[in-house]
Design a protein around this nucleic acid. Structure first.
Lengths: 322, 322
DNA sequence: TTGTAAGCGTTATCAT
DNA sequence: ATGATAACGCTTACAA
């Protein structure tokens, strides 16, 4: 018991005793058994992070932020790759096995319709954009405002035929929120909303961006700006436009969303939205810790929706400096 | 007890009994307590993965491979960011706390001199390049051969003044192995080894690549090819050369190492070495599992060094197709 | 085929 | 200030 008190820095241990214990610990090369502590405490000190794919620049950066934030709070992070909507729901129930103290779910495949299934009796924070006013705490990108700012920036720079490259539109998801922001910006500038300028792709990756950009030019679509809802799409678009011999930013201006580390070094460098990744990561971890520590199995405070900050980063792809 | 037998699919449970148990489990919404199981079994079902930074394209891809390989073997992966050499050594001792069943350490800062400190009494596999014939199992990149192939490719394409961009050289690390491969290729082609063409940078990232490329051109260094020891460096170099108005591949050819997802979509697309990431990830997990299951606390088989395969991917930056 | 008992290493509670 | 005791939930060994 006294050993336990020493280890946990509890008061009421005489300095001399503490010394003796520490000495013995060193001599015996003693390590606490975390499994036993977990069993006793009912906590593991580990939170789960479920993301679609760690390998992508965006989710990699996200994971890095969460891990750093958790580390500062003495929590470890165990990562699961979900990839599919089914796996996202699986991740929810897996964490019930007391594997994790809580789960941060970065949802890509869930929609508002799944909100019900998020009603689990253990701490969950959703990081993403689809579930609003749902049964869980929620940290979201500043989708609407940032999309408006991005589109507005293209317009300011002289674009009059601004296309948007987004994913499938279902209810309240990332793509439709950003599309709304795009529309608001067009409207505010008094520009017509041409449905032909709204380009949807299946996956928000580089390959789809490149292919679609080639198709857009090949089909003779008239556009002088593209707002891509992710940097990965934008990287593909830059590549596709290069293939088509279209100059950026002279003939077409391009702006992305995410500010992945690579965007600064592309040729041309990519203008983009820089969301406050770290702030959002911190917030997500804090919300989760709040839920974990809220010992009452009872109601607890209302579920919170937090929207992160952002800034517009102007680089060469919209005529800015390097 | 019978419940335990049911859960673990042990024989000698009458179907009727099994049904009753399963029914009760469903009714009570029972979940096994993993902490208790861990305590009893002395295993956690979790392996640790320590990498310098998950956020980078390279380590992100690596982590993705490890997670996928571990998943197939019913293991979870907990990720730690090391960032510094000290943290890498810390990660080693942390995993002693029975937190993980074993640790995969992707070492960037360790050198041969640290080999001694890897002698820990729990399962460790080192993924990287610095420790050879050390006290642990080891999965390495095909550094030497691949570097020779990359440099050889530049020479085949007509380069006669091939520079190499690498990191600090200490004993047997990534950079020096790749440098050796580079030298061998020059020698095989009968080209002189000009020390001025060996360019060292502090960090193997995009920023250093861009800066150094600008310096190399500004200083009037004569070169017509660059072998970058990482794709991140190469991305920076492409950017730096663009800033200097040097045409790639016409004036200078560039090849990288890693085949990160982005390399295919750059302008120009990046020729590179494609290591067998997934094969290496599988192998690392298998080696670790072998060590974990080797119950004898006694010697066990000799430590293994495994070197992965690779291929050369030829793209625009060395005059190849898109 | 099923059930009993013990113990994994820790910490909360309570006595000394 | 220190220590005895019990309990966290599970599984292995053994008994019924």
């Amino acid at each position: 018991m006294t050993v336990s008190n020493v280890i946990n820095d509890h008061p009421n241990v005489r300095p001399a005793t503490r010394e003796k214990v520490l000495e013995a610990m060193a001599r015996l090369d003693y390590r606490v058994n975390v499994a036993a502590r977990n069993l006793r405490k009912g906590r593991t000190g580990v939170i789960g992070l479920a993301v679609p794919e760690v390998g992508s620049a965006y989710y990699g950066r996200l994971a890095a932020g969460i891990i750093a934030a958790a580390e500062r709070r003495n929590l470890r992070v165990s990562i699961e790759q979900t990839a599919s909507r089914e796996n996202e729901l699986d991740a929810l129930s897996l964490s019930r096995n007391h594997q994790y103290d809580g789960l941060i779910l970065s949802a890509a495949g869930l929609s508002q319709a799944d909100a019900e299934r998020l009603k689990v009796d253990h701490p969950v924070v959703v990081l993403g954009d689809r579930i609003f006013g749902g049964p869980v705490d929620h940290v979201a990108m500043p989708n609407l405002e940032a999309a408006r700012a991005a589109t507005g920036h293209l317009i300011e720079r002289g674009c009059r035929r601004v296309a948007i490259l987004c994913g499938a539109l279902e209810e309240v998801d990332t793509s439709s929120l950003r599309l709304t922001g795009y529309r608001q910006a067009l409207e505010a500038a008094g520009l017509p909303a041409d449905p032909g300028l709204i380009q949807q792709v299946d996956r928000l990756g580089m390959r789809d961006g490149a292919e679609r950009a080639r198709e857009m030019t090949a089909s003779g679509l008239d556009f002088d700006g593209v707002f891509c809802v992710t940097d990965a799409l934008a990287m593909g678009v830059l590549r596709g436009l290069a293939d088509a011999g279209i100059g950026v930013p002279d003939q077409v201006k391009v702006i992305g969303f995410d500010n992945v580390p690579e965007s600064e070094f592309l040729v041309p460098s990519l203008s983009t939205i820089d969301p406050d990744h770290d702030g959002m990561a911190e917030r997500a971890v804090d919300l989760l810790i709040g839920r974990i520590e809220q010992t009452e199995p009872e109601p607890g405070p209302e579920h919170q929706d937090f929207v992160g900050g952002f800034s517009v980063v102007i680089r060469e792809s919209t005529g800015g400096p390097r």
